[in-house]
Amino acid sequence: MLNRLALIAFSCLLFITAPAGAADTASAMAFVQSLGDTALSSLTDKSLPPKAREDRTRNLLRKYFDIKTIGRFALGTHWKTATSAEQSEYMGLFEDMIVSTYASRFGEYSGQSLEVGKSRPIGKRDFIVNSKILQTDGPPVNVDWQVRHKNGKLKVIDVQVENVSMLITQRNEFAAVIQRNGGEVSSLLETLRKRKGG
């Protein structure tokens, strides 16, 4: 009897404590909505100087995206052949590239809004959140977010625009740059450096 009570008490405890650390589809959806709203409200202001827009983009990126996972996946198997100095330089350059690309994209946005649709769990701790970007001057764009629950936080690890994964495209592109330059990771770093300078 006592055992049984203990068991019940224990299960109640589990039941109460479990949701605190866990994420569900609803929280993944709320997360994406918050990301979309924040990005569209804080980055699309036309009067924003480019530097300020980049700073805001970087903050947003660090807050909402698992840039480490994204960067490593994008480099693919070349990560292992890179020296640790190359790895850390790559991470910095990769972040800069994402920041400048997205800052300029958001600088051109106006009148868009994000409408979150459904969400479903995938794998051990990821969620796919479907959404649409509604535009005033064109048909809606389907955007699917892959969100990972990690260390008690949700972070975006991939964005698929009309079924094209930004992560896969980036990875294929980096692989092509490296492959065309004798398989050297340093060639990719050189390309990224040039891009940043130019």
Partner: peptide, 30 residues
Amino acid sequence: LDYYAAVRSAYAQKRRALIHNENPDAPTTP
């Protein structure tokens, strides 16, 4: 960085999604 490679990748992905009839449950996510 490599426009050719980016188009090739995007194209392959888009085709794959179409073959799966853009079914969101198809294993198209990495």
